[in-house]
Design a protein around this nucleic acid. Structure first.
Lengths: 150, 150
DNA sequence: CTCTATGCAAAACCTTTGCATAGAA
DNA sequence: TTCTATGCAAAGGTTTTGCATAGAG
């Protein structure tokens, strides 16, 4: 595991006069290793597998902290449940989601980003964040339907 | 009030062998008149003002029906609460949201739409729906902060 | 008369909070 | 020793569901 994330989180902790703790470190570790979108529940169960004493509330609190450190991003798809994804510095991407199997592709289109900034300018908004989700049916799932039963 | 929406809803109701009902008609009426994004709670209180006997569950159920008829769209901003917006045929737009005052601008950029379809093609997804939310600070709110206290 | 829709309350979610205690500095 | 973080349980908020009854066809 890259020590950078740990360092960034530690700095964030120091800068807010909080304390380092075992659960926080372990939650970050499992989260980084998972390397995909996780709901709090999912992360909670992953963490529990290795560290059974962990409480759900701690996962919520740690995730909030990790987000504030800029290490993760909250996204919500159609079901409205918060999902968290690990974010490396300078990284930004949007999502292409299959509504059949739930598969998520990360996408990035600089042209779209540019056009978004034009919109901010046109409406005189200071950019803060944005969210683009494309829902569709992936090739695997669409083939299943063409191929006949089941 | 344009009778078209009522007609579309009635057709949807017929096609699913459901029944016309007073509450459904009234909820649709108030929803269309409001003509903006509403949470279920907001719509519930609006409906209650005119028709005090209405129940919250009925609003949830009616809204789901109205969505299925293609007359409304569910959107979720950062707070994760479902908001519903009335959709006229062929209408599509995205949202520009002020994170300070909550003001919502409807935006539409054909260029962005075109690029989104290129992405679907590139990843071999069949398009279904998409969601673009731009968060920022509107000019009014940013001026408040520059201008000094309060 | 039959079957669906309603209203109410309870339940089922996700998420936050309060509090006594464990643990970090 | 002094605070913060934790785990647990309770509380909050949104959304769904069960059920007896009202209402539509």
């Amino acid at each position: 595991m890259n020590p950078d994330e740990k360092k960034i989180l530690e700095e964030q902790i120091k800068s807010k006069s909080l304390r380092h703790s075992q659960p926080r470190e372990k939650i970050l570790e499992v989260f980084v290793k998972a390397n995909k979108h996780l709901t709090v529940q999912e992360l909670y169960f992953l963490v529990k597998k290795k560290y059974p004493d962990t409480g759900l509330a701690t996962v919520y609190r740690a995730l909030k902290l990790i987000c504030e450190a800029g290490l993760c991003r909250e996204v919500r798809f159609e079901d409205g449940i918060a999902r968290y994804e690990f974010v490396r510095e300078g990284d930004h991407h949007d999502h292409l989601i299959c509504i059949k199997c739930g598969r998520v592709e990360e996408i990035y289109d600089p042209e779209i980003e540019r056009l978004q900034h034009k919109i901010y300018k046109k409406y005189k908004f200071i950019p803060h964040a944005h969210n683009l989700e494309l829902y569709g049916i992936c090739d695997k799932c669409s083939k299943k339907h063409l191929g006949g039963s089941k």
